[in-house]
Simulated assay, not measured.
Amino acid sequence: MPPTDPGSQPIPVVVAGALGRMGAEVVKAVVSAADCSLAGAIDTGAGSEGQDVGLALGLEELGVALSSDFEGSLCQASQEARRGGAAVLVDFTHPSVVYEHTRAAIAYGVHPVIGTTGLTPEQLADLATFSQKASMGGAVIPNFSVGMVLLQQAAAAAARFYDFAELTELHHNRKADAPSGTCVKTAELMEELGKTFNAPQVEEHESLPGCRGGRRESGLRLHSVRLPGLVAHQEVMFGAAGETYTLRHDTIERSAYMPGVLHTVRRVRELGGLVYGLERLL
């Protein structure tokens, strides 16, 4: 919830990937939130340097110029935010740079809120250690949808009763990583039971390599679909003798993520280290 103190300073927010589909929604959400202020807009798109981010997105002029200088933007936001509390970075960029972005934000004293997926378990562990040593709160959130959190909790509960399950995630064809971080997170929650899934019933043979999806050590199989027209969708199917049980979540518009983004922005400065997953903040 927004701060109740009317004299409190707005939370300075820097958006990385500001011209992307998710970044644009974050910019709109931040400027519409009374307790937040847009402190920076980062994007590496050709020809965007120095443009007002509001005009570039077809909004009104916001007085914030687009910059491709990631660390320079963090440094500026950190210096300007000292009077009213630390700044927050919301990152929706690319898996190839998300680790460096997160580490740089912590180093500059800017709380990272990371929506970009693709961090490895080793990178997450390293960032958690780094943020704890720096006493900097941060959040890596594979999916900002409350509905997806509910699906993941239901999948973890159902995993107690079913020994066979497969997960399918479907996204637009501009998503760079597969499987999605959300799907991996769902599998991890199901695996917390410590059980093995999908015991072999027959000696399988793939005439087309990969058609059975990716197999995790637990036996869970993950499938990825990439098509234009999709946004973000996930299905978990359980099977048992005589029945199947299916959980599914569909994101129709990216605006569905914004309540979760703003909730995380409001909470992240209270944290003493890095958290992984929106459920840790609800």
Score class of each variant (00 low, 15 high):
102 T>L: 02
77 A>K: 11
95 P>V: 00
93 T>R: 01
123 Q>L: 04
96 S>W: 08
76 Q>Y: 06
108 Y>T: 07
83 R>E: 15
106 I>Y: 08
103 R>Y: 06
76 Q>S: 14
83 R>K: 14
101 H>D: 10
105 A>S: 07
92 F>W: 07
74 L>P: 09
82 R>A: 15
122 E>F: 10
120 T>D: 12
113 V>E: 04
107 A>E: 15
96 S>L: 14
115 G>T: 08
116 T>C: 02
123 Q>N: 04
103 R>L: 06
85 G>I: 07
125 A>N: 13
123 Q>Y: 05
127 L>C: 03
90 V>E: 07
114 I>A: 01
84 G>P: 05
123 Q>F: 02
75 C>L: 12
75 C>D: 15
75 C>R: 15
74 L>I: 12
125 A>Y: 10
120 T>M: 05
83 R>W: 14
111 H>M: 10
90 V>Q: 09
113 V>M: 08
91 D>Q: 09
95 P>Q: 08
123 Q>T: 00
79 Q>S: 13
101 H>N: 11
108 Y>P: 08
80 E>Y: 06
105 A>M: 01
94 H>N: 08
104 A>K: 02
77 A>Y: 13
111 H>N: 09
118 G>W: 01
112 P>G: 10
78 S>K: 11
92 F>E: 04
95 P>C: 02
79 Q>P: 12
89 L>S: 13
120 T>C: 10
101 H>C: 07
100 E>Y: 14
120 T>F: 03
90 V>A: 06
129 T>V: 14
86 A>T: 09
106 I>A: 02
110 V>T: 05
128 A>L: 03
104 A>W: 00
119 L>P: 14
99 Y>H: 04
74 L>A: 00
88 V>F: 07
107 A>L: 07
108 Y>E: 12
94 H>Y: 13
125 A>M: 12
74 L>H: 03
127 L>P: 09
85 G>Y: 11
94 H>D: 14
104 A>M: 01
111 H>D: 03
87 A>H: 03
91 D>A: 15
89 L>G: 11
87 A>F: 05
107 A>P: 07
104 A>I: 00
103 R>I: 01
124 L>C: 08
110 V>G: 03
126 D>L: 08
110 V>Y: 11
112 P>H: 04
94 H>M: 01
92 F>S: 13
123 Q>E: 08
81 A>F: 06
83 R>F: 11
126 D>I: 02
90 V>D: 07
104 A>G: 06
75 C>H: 13
117 T>F: 04
121 P>Q: 07
110 V>H: 04
111 H>T: 01
77 A>C: 14
79 Q>T: 15
82 R>D: 11
79 Q>E: 15
88 V>S: 04
115 G>S: 12
105 A>H: 05
113 V>W: 00
98 V>Q: 09
95 P>W: 00
88 V>W: 05
122 E>K: 06
107 A>F: 04
85 G>P: 13
115 G>L: 11
124 L>W: 06
103 R>T: 00
121 P>F: 11
127 L>F: 05
101 H>Y: 11
93 T>L: 00
78 S>V: 10
116 T>M: 00
119 L>F: 12
76 Q>G: 13
94 H>C: 03
112 P>A: 02
122 E>T: 04
112 P>Y: 05
82 R>Y: 06
108 Y>W: 13
123 Q>G: 03
117 T>A: 05
118 G>C: 01
86 A>R: 15
95 P>R: 01
90 V>W: 15
